[in-house]
């Protein structure tokens, strides 16, 4: 209900559309455009929760196939329960430091090589909901394409949004998406983006990933998007 109060207060909010219904409009647009199928959504939902099995901080983790997800009834068609994030209490904190201070604190700092954020109109009718132009622009400004992306932590609260974001970021098959389980495994909404940066930083600092992308979103149907490129130093 609070998210409904985020919409245009004169023309949209008085209709009280809930956040899942708003996201479902975008999912429907994906299907109608032929860019994805419900099976694609289910695949994201299944993989995210399976990845979350390795994340002790995740709220929702399980091992079920995409076929099992597809057998669920719709929550708000075409979205099923597993296409939607859990309701989460959570907080995150990240400490930033520059240059030698960072080097003195950790063996392998996760350097911010690029960070940018862009916004789009809030009105859904003014946007092509099947693409994320603001993410594409932010990715370009942040230099995502300047090197290989080992890991991407994407703030995609709904399964179909991962597909939109992966395309906007230009991610290929070599990129591991949301090894933490992403927002589908825990979505303390306005902190979920910072969690993505923290999850990626952990993987870069540990050496598991050399270079990666973290993403955060805000507003209905991916209205505003932030892209952050993190990179470790070669020893």
């Amino acid at each position: 209900m609070v998210l409904t109060r985020q919409l245009d207060p004169i023309t949209v909010a008085p209709l009280w559309p809930d956040s899942v219904s708003i996201a479902a409009l975008q999912a429907r647009a994906m299907l109608d455009s032929g860019k994805a199928t419900e099976a694609d959504f289910a695949e994201v939902a299944s993989r995210s929760r399976r990845n979350a099995l390795d994340n002790p901080k995740a709220q929702l983790a399980w091992d079920r196939s995409a076929e099992e997800v597809l057998s669920e009834p719709y929550t708000v068609a075409p979205l099923r329960r597993s296409d939607c994030p859990p309701i989460t209490d959570g907080a995150a904190a990240v400490v930033l430091a520059a240059g030698d201070v960072a080097r003195s604190k950790v063996d392998r700092p996760a350097w911010i090589r690029g960070i940018d954020h862009r916004v789009e109109p809030i009105h859904l009718g003014l946007r092509d909901l099947t693409v994320s132009e603001s993410t594409r622009l932010a990715a370009s400004k942040a230099g995502v394409a300047d090197g290989p992306v080992d890991v991407a932590e994407l703030h995609a609260p709904f399964s179909h949004q991962e597909l939109i974001l992966a395309e906007a970021l230009g991610l290929g098959v070599d990129t591991r998406i949301n090894p933490s389980g992403g927002a589908l495994a825990a979505n303390a909404m306005l902190t979920a983006g910072l969690v993505r940066i923290g999850e990626l930083a952990d993987r870069v600092m540990s050496g598991e990933a050399r270079r990666g992308v973290a993403h955060a979103t805000s507003g209905p149907c991916l209205q505003q998007n932030l892209v952050c490129v993190l990179e470790g130093e070669e020893a």
Binding site: M1, V2, R5, P9
Partner: peptide
């Protein structure tokens, strides 16, 4: 104007 009561 529009009146939009909200309660939580």
């Amino acid at each position: 104007s529009v009146r939009t009561p909200a309660q939580l």
